[in-house]
Every structure is written in C-alpha cells, then in structure tokens.
Design a protein around this nucleic acid. Structure first.
Lengths: 229, 229
DNA sequence: TCTTGTTAGATTGTCGACAATCTGCTTGTC
DNA sequence: GACAAGCAGATTGTCGACAATCTAACAAGA
C-alpha cells in the first residue's frame, strides 16, 4: 500500500468557522481595538444564531484578543504601549529557549522548510502584500518553535503570535507608506543553518529589537491619543 | 472623604460560576484525565441550561485543561509524561525571567507578601491539606510573576499554573501516603529577600527540579498504564 | 443647577426544543 | 462465522424566544 499522509479534515462546526473569521478580522485590523462586537448584528451578517457566535467569542476572549464585560459587551482588546513592550520582552526569552531546544533537532527537512518559509516572506514582500508579509514572517519565526518539540512552548508562542500579528497590522495600517522591501531575515536564516547557536540566539534578540523600535514608536502614538480623551 | 479601595464585584453570570466549579473539579483531580463531560448530565446537576455550560467549557478548552472533539464530546485533557516535562522546562525559563524582572521592584510590601504566602504554605502543610498545600505553594511562586510588571508573562504563567496544579493533584492522589511535612521553601524565600539575584534564579531552577523528579516518576507510571491499553 | 428616580430601548445572558452527527446493535447476505 | 447495510438511541451543535441587565434620556425635587 502506498504510504500517504492525510491531513486532518476541516472542522465542520459553524463555531470553528466563526472563530476563524473573527480572528482574521481582528488580526488584520479590520476590527479596531476597543471596538464593540454586537452579537445580533454579527450573527445576522454571518447568518448564524447567537449561540455558536457567543461560543466562538469565548474562545477568542481566552485567546487574549477579545475582552468581555458581563452585560456590557465583548470588545477587541485595547492596545497600550506597555502591552507591546511586555509581549516583545517575553518573546525574546521564548525565542532564545526555542532555538536552544530546536538546535539539536535540526536536519535536512528543517533546512528545507526554513528555505520554503523564507521564500514565502520574500514573495509577499515583492507583492507588497503587507498582511501576508506579517503572516509569513511570523511563520518563519515559528519554525524553531515547531521543532523545539515542546507542546506547551509552542502553544504559548501561538498565543503570543496572535497579539504580535495584531500589533504589526495596526502598525502597518497606521502609517500610510508601504513597507520596506528589503529582506531582514537573510542573516536569521543563515545563522539557523550555521553551527553557532549562541550567535543565532543573539541575533534573534537583536533582530526582534529592530522591529520593536518601529512598533514602539507606534505604541507611543497610541498612548498620546488615549491621554487626550 | 475616607479613602477606600473597593475590590471589583464578583462576576454575576452563571457562566463564570460554572467555569470556577469545573476548573476546581479538574484541578483537584475530582474529574480524571480523559474523562468525558456529558453536557446534559452536568447541566442538570448544576441546574443550568446547556448554553452557559457550553460557553464555560469553551473557555476551559482554551485554557488547556479540557479538549474538545466536534460531535464526540469534551474531555479532561490527557496527561502524558512528555506534557509534564514540557510544562516544567518552560516553567524554569519563565521563573528565571520573572525573578529578573521582579528583582528591582522588590520593596517592603513585596517582602511582607512573601512572608504571608510562605506562612500560608506552612499552615496548609501542618493541616495536611494537600489540595490547599499545592494551591498555596503555587501562589508563593506566583508572587514574582505578579511583581514582574509584565501582563503577558503573568497571564502565561497562570495558564501554565493550571496544568501544574492538575499534575500535582494527580500525583498526590496517585500515592496514598501523605505529603512530606518539611518546608522546602525556606531557602527560596530567603534568597528572594537577599541581594544575589543569580543565586535566587539558580535555586528556583534546582528547587523546581526537586519536585519534578517525583512528578516524573508518576508520569512514567502513566505511560506504562497507557501502553497496556 | 445639580442630584436623584423613572422609564424605554437596546443588548447580553439563559432557556428549552429541534437538527445534525456519532456509536453500537441488529439484521441480512455470502 | 465474517462482513456490510441500516436502524435506534444517545449526544452534541444550532436555533429562536424570553429574561435579566445596562444605558441614556427625561422628569421631579432640593
């Protein structure tokens, strides 16, 4: 019998589809921070009842991108400068740990996948598709987590990623100019292929800091706007 | 006007109460790993409809202590040795980070709270209340996270704590003998009061390893039992 | 004018019933 | 006896309606 790996079939519940739809809307910035989600309106738009919609919302609340106040409503989480700083500083620590765990697991398949994802980033960059650019970049960074062989770490990172993606999207949206077309991941990929783990960890930190500077500037703008109200 | 700090009023939704009830049942081991949660039966026992119960379950699924399979049911997560190892190794990294962040924030209030929580552990130990012993020990360890002033880190740890508490409870439940009455936190507390941060971090790691050895032995038993089926 | 009480409208929380799906048993066929 | 098809029961997923609660506007009184 020919050996064939089947991927798991898609979730067939409305709930799962609603979660995907809402998550995408939030992470791409179509739903803005602080915005209220009206259950009746959304359920009518999606042509579903409120039950699966509400269950989906509970999931996203636990995922940390929605926040719920009883009898008041469910809102897209507000983003403060502090949140971005916190997420990034934790991300640094986790990245270092992930690289350490993944390091001995690296093999040809790892390198191939690394190249594949790097290529996806470059392609999105060429196409000037900012949303996809963010997605692919995070997927590139996610590879070490997937290879770290630590389910809890991977899950933690995926939760963190949700917010990072949201922050990036907001950032991109805020500034009207297009994203830089240069490829900042060249060194990162090269180091992950190399033999100096410490160097790779160090670069991951510095690389993150680089993006961080821009994001932080955006965050400060948020703060200023908030203090006006 | 006298200055008075009001704490936020309790959540008044059935959903929130159900979450608390179920979480407690799982973390204390009353609901065993792999066990199926029958919605109709539970909703009748609690005298609520299935809607808030299901929403509560979604939250606990995202929290990582329940797992759901569409049209099949919702189950208490299975615990494998690998899960315990993964959770603990991540916990070590986070502990080190938390201590680093909390270190410059320490003040008299921190030390007072540290003593208070330490006292709570000792009291639970004297009373041979194993469930409470686990709870208080985790709260003691949680202090540095609360003082680290990083919301994302704190939230991550709280999620991790859920599982750790569950693992400990299962462990305690598995062995019939009572828990050791000695106090293993004396050194931990002393080091957090001291001036050598590295020493405190190092001890946190080793201390965790200590508990870990016992837990791992339990985990191996689980593996053996699983392989029989 | 400021505060307090009231009320109407909108929105969230909860309920009971129905639809979709799964599981295990039974039946029939070879 | 082995195996597939089909049926019945139980359980989960979804729906529409009702109850509880909040918000904002308005009225009444100090």
């Amino acid at each position: 019998m020919a050996k064939l790996d089947f991927s798991p079939i898609a979730d067939t519940t409305r709930r799962a589809e609603i979660v995907a739809l809402l998550r995408r809307a939030i992470l791409t910035g179509q739903l803005e921070p602080g915005q209220k989600l009206n259950e009746l309106r959304i359920s009518e738009q999606m042509r579903v009842s409120r039950a699966p919609l509400r269950e989906a919302m509970r999931e996203l609340v636990q995922e940390g991108i929605l926040t719920s106040i009883p009898y008041a409503g469910t809102f897209v989480v507000d983003v403060a400068a502090k949140d971005i700083i916190d997420a990034y500083s934790l991300n640094k620590v986790l990245d270092e740990f992930a690289i350490e765990l993944a390091w001995p697991q690296r093999n040809q398949r790892f390198f191939d996948e690394l190249d594949r994802r790097h290529e996806a980033v470059k392609q999105a960059t060429r196409a000037v598709d900012t949303t996809r650019q963010i997605e692919t970049a995070l997927q590139l960074h996610g590879l070490v987590y997937e290879w770290a062989d630590n389910a809890v770490l991977l899950e933690t990172w995926q939760r963190l990623t949700s917010r990072l993606q949201m922050y990036f999207a907001l950032h991109q949206r805020a500034r009207n100019e297009p994203v830089p077309a240069e490829d900042v991941h060249e060194t990162y990929v090269a180091l992950l292929k190399g033999s100096d783990m410490r160097a790779a960890q160090r670069h991951a930190r510095e690389h993150i800091d680089l993006d961080f500077e821009e994001l932080l500037a955006y965050a400060r703008g948020l703060e200023k706007r908030a203090s006006k109200n």
